[in-house]
Amino acid sequence: MTPSADAVEVAVVTGASTGIGREFARRLAKRCGKVILIARDAARLEETRQEVVALGAAAEIVVCNLSERSEVERLAQQLSEIPNIEYLVNNAGFGTMGDFVDVDRQQHADMINVHVVATVLLTHAVVPGMKARGRGYIINVASMSSFMIGPGQVTYAATKASLTSFSESLQVELERTGVQVQALCPGFTRTDFHNRPQFEGFDRDTISANLWLTPEQVVDFSLRKLPSKRVVCVPGLKNQFFARLMTFRFVRIIAGKSVRKK
C-alpha cells in the first residue's frame, strides 16, 4: 500500500468482502478515486475489487486479520502515510450466540480486537491527515444492540456500545475541524452475518419481515445522513422508534432478551 501520488480522494473500508462493507465500497467508488478494501477473504475481496473498478475507481486489496494486533498495527501505519483519505468505514465485525461463559474466551478477545481495538487504531491513524485537510468522514458500524442489555450477546452488545460512545466523544473533540464521525446502528440486515457457524440455530423467519433492511438501504441512509452531522445514525423508522424507547432500562432488557430468543 502506497500513498496516492496524484492526490485522488481515498476511501478505506474494512469488512469489504460482503454485506454492508461491500455496499459501502460500491457506493464510495462513485465518490472517491480509489477504494482500499480490507478483509480476511482474498477471493471475495477480489469480487468487490472488480465491482469497484467497474464503477470507475481504482481499488486495492489488503488481506488483514483485524483480530491480530500486529496486523492492525501494520495496517494503521500504512494508512497514516496516506494523506488524502476522505472516508474511513470501520465495518468489520462478527457475532456469537450463547451465554458468556459458554462462548470460547478467544472469541470474546477476538471480538474486542476487531470491533474496538482495530477501530481505535485505524481511526487514530487517519484523523491527523483529515484534520490537516480540513475534512473527512469516519463511519463506525455499531448496531442496535449497542442500546440493549444483551444476555446471549454480552460482548457483542458491549463492543457495539463502545463504538457508539467512542464516536460521540470523538466527534466532540473534532468539532470545527471539518471531520465528521458517525456511529451507524443498523438492526437486522440481509447479509451473510447470520450464515456463519456461530448462528447455526438462528431462524430468520422468526423475525418480522418488515424489520429487515438490505445493505443498500443501510448504506444509503448512512451516506444521506452524513451532512446532518448527527453522530448516532439509526436506519429504518421502526428501528428509530425502538432506539428511542430504549432510553428506558426495562425496555433495553426486554429487547435484549427478545433478540436472544431469535
Rank of each mutant, 00 (worst) to 15 (best):
G19I: 05
I149H: 09
S4E: 13
T247H: 13
Q240W: 10
L163S: 04
D99I: 10
S208T: 02
S70F: 09
K225E: 15
T96R: 13
I139K: 03
E23A: 02
V218N: 07
A54D: 00
A39I: 04
V13N: 08
Q106N: 13
Q107R: 12
V117D: 13
V259M: 04
N239Q: 14
K160T: 00
T206F: 01
R31T: 12
F250T: 13
E47F: 00
V103E: 10
L170M: 11
T164S: 15
V219W: 09
D220E: 14
A57V: 04
H194E: 07
I112G: 00
H108D: 04
V172E: 11
G33E: 06
N84K: 13
R260Q: 09
Q171P: 01
G98T: 07
E175V: 02
L237P: 08
E71S: 06
P83Q: 04
V181D: 00
S167D: 02
H124T: 10
G178M: 05
E216Y: 09
R230D: 12
S258V: 03
R135T: 02
R135K: 11
K225R: 15
V218R: 09
I85E: 02
L163I: 07
K238I: 12
V251S: 10
Q78H: 02
K261P: 04
G201F: 00
I38V: 14
R40T: 08
A7Q: 15
E23D: 08
Q240F: 08
F242T: 10
P3K: 03
T18C: 10
F250Y: 09
L28A: 11
I61M: 06
R249I: 14
L121I: 08
V12I: 06
G19H: 03
Q182R: 12
T164I: 14
V179P: 03
K131N: 10
T191W: 06
L213I: 04
E47Q: 14
A132C: 02
E47P: 00
T14P: 14
F100W: 11
S80R: 13
T18W: 02
E200L: 01
Y137C: 04
E73N: 14
D110K: 09
M246V: 08
P83V: 05
A57E: 01
A161H: 11
A58L: 12
M1A: 12
T177E: 09
S162W: 11
I149N: 09
I207E: 00
I20N: 01
R135S: 12
P235C: 12
F100M: 15
F188E: 05
L170R: 01
D110A: 11
V126M: 05
S145N: 13
N90H: 05
T18M: 10
H194D: 09
L122G: 03
V141Q: 10
K30S: 15
D102I: 10
T18S: 15
D102N: 15
M144R: 10
D110M: 06
V89M: 06
F147M: 13
M97G: 06
D110H: 07
V114L: 05
V13K: 08
L223V: 01
P83M: 05
D41R: 15
T2R: 13
A39H: 05
